[in-house]
Amino acid sequence: MKSAVIVFPGSNCDRDLIVALRDVTGRDPALVWHRETELPSGLDLIGVPGGFSYGDYLRSGAMAANSPVMRAVKDAADRGVSVLGICNGFQILTEAGMLPGALMRNSTISFVCRDVDLKVENSQSAFTSRYDAGEEIRIPVAHHDGNYTADEATLDRLEGDGRIAFRYSGEVNGSARDIAGIVNDKGNVLGMMPHPERMIESAHGGTDGRRIFEGLLEAIG
């Protein structure tokens, strides 16, 4: 599996994502700076990491979504390349229109930084194939703007099409229908607020995040 991690000014989980990808796939991901207009050829997976791209100016992810590299990321996703957006990466993918809805300020207005229990809603996607549907897993969150919002019709469509990948088991940030992660209609783009790259080895306190990367490796090869 050939992967790349996009780096924006203010990304701060890029290294964790690189380490996770290297550990699971055995290959170093390419690093792609946000000003690039082309991606390395033959990519199977693009990671959009967490952090505070452009200082969260205007809205979280708004600036990054309009940076040059995102056009190439969109084109790649249209061609079927897998895209994984984590935390700020999820915010960037919604701002870029690659995933529906928006991530607003947490309903408590406070930054939330702790391990949370998630329910795997759908194990059909390449991202979630190594989990069982309905399984409870524990992965940390660290965000201020994770309150997923979309209109009722969009939420119903996400539910009906099985596009909710993960749901919070308890109240975390006010997200509509406790949504923690969703996939696009083709199933090759996943955005999630929790950080699977921070639960890769037992020293992290758990390995529940690892299976996302293992599932991708299995699906893509």
């Binding site: 701002e95 928006a102 919002t149 979309a150």
Partner: peptide, 9 residues
């Protein structure tokens, strides 16, 4: 529409 507002919300 492109940047200043997120018309979803």
């Amino acid at each position: 529409k492109k940047l200043l507002a997120n018309t979803v919300i």
